[in-house]
Design a protein around this nucleic acid. Structure first.
Lengths: 208, 208
DNA sequence: CGGCAAGTTGAGCGGACTCAATGCATGTGG
DNA sequence: CCACATGCATTGAGTCCGCTCAACTTGCCG
């Protein structure tokens, strides 16, 4: 167990606090135990824009945030379990059972990237907003009540839309009865199937 | 040297020939020695669309093509050096330094993905076309003459535009004197700096 | 010559953006 | 408590970019 624990580190962050990505002692894998992280990137004009969110229970790839100037910070009270290179190697050596396989992790990251690429390249505004909400919904375990951790402008930054368009599309979903919006940041998913249908993605394959 | 060579394989493909990605004996890393590969994905409607190109001298990540239904095929006479899991493991065991190279490879893939995400999310049609041409130009070593391996429709599939818009933007670049187009698939880059300026990317950092 | 595929060009439309005004909470000081 | 400021969200009006649809050109191969 010592070897397994060695190289692990559990850190707590408060709302807005940046997550240090020391290039020397770079964390190798990170697991968000509770809370949520945001990743900002700088665009061509040097502006910071929201790029991605990481929710509780999700993994940070060794190559995700440390890419081109990505800046991680906590959206709320967040506990992050990081595992450096040594710890990760020990873990993989001791517990092959854990499919905490680096390749599977990276594959998941690439799959997520592909979904974003499809969203940004081919989807309409309504499909983009529906997709984002559906993803948040799924990533929160399918619970009906969603608490959006970001405002309309930041939703727009992620999805390549303006804040006004995001607002209009959320309004359209509300009017269609797919969601309820008691407060701007509180979303109730009333019809998850309809929401998924509006994402423009292929329907989930049913068991034969 | 024997152990290092073990698990490597050099294959030749003709134009249009699919590259097999056997899940059992999945190639782990691939290097395009000459020629070019295309990667197609299926969209929500089940249509095949061009997703990415890999030129000579470039690497295929172990997670790139084997992702969600990606289909690799040769665009022309292509020689692909592949290295399966066994070979790669042997290589890593013998040369621990190489593991770093795998991370660098993946990092490069992620950087490329980020560029596409920026292109699809934030760029105008003219910037998208300029970016694609500038990338092809850079990836071909900065030679003035470019031979586009795909048609207008496929350029549009990669960049999220229609073939008509691609055609119009190429025409605009030609009229601006940035490129010359003796034939539809032959592009001469007349002013690489102007082309880069039109990509909408931040200017390359000059040495102070 | 005809037929086909790829490319170009034009006309018109519509969706998303821009700009601007308004609503609606929350906070803050008199 | 009220008046005011502030930040976020919503809503409206107008514009423009890129798409759709269609006609036409160009090059290639039979």
């Amino acid at each position: 167990m010592n070897r397994i624990r060695h190289g692990f580190c559990e850190d707590q962050y408060t709302r807005g606090e940046p997550v240090l990505c020391d290039p020397i002692e770079m964390p190798f894998v990170g697991l968000v135990l509770c809370g949520a992280l945001r990743e900002d990137v700088r665009d061509a004009q040097g502006e910071r824009r929201l790029f991605a969110l990481t929710f509780a229970g999700e993994l940070l790839s060794p190559l995700g945030p440390q890419r081109i100037g990505g800046q991680l910070s906590a959206l709320e009270e967040t506990v992050l379990l990081t595992c450096d290179r040594t710890g990760f190697d020990a873990l993989v050596a001791d517990i092959p059972h854990l499919r905490l396989n680096l390749l599977h992790l990276l594959q998941g990251q690439i799959a997520a990237t592909h979904r974003w690429q499809t969203l940004l390249g081919r989807k309409s505004a309504s499909e983009r907003v529906a997709s984002m909400l559906a993803w948040f919904h799924a990533r929160h375990g399918g619970k009906d009540k969603l608490l959006l951790p970001v405002n309309r402008a930041e939703l727009g930054q992620m999805s390549g839309l303006t804040l006004e368009t995001v607002s209009r599309q959320i309004h359209a979903l509300k009017k269609a009865g797919v969601i309820a919006v008691p407060q701007p940041t509180h979303i109730h998913v009333l019809d998850a199937d309809a929401l998924h249908a509006l994402t423009g993605d292929a329907p989930a394959r049913r068991a034969a």
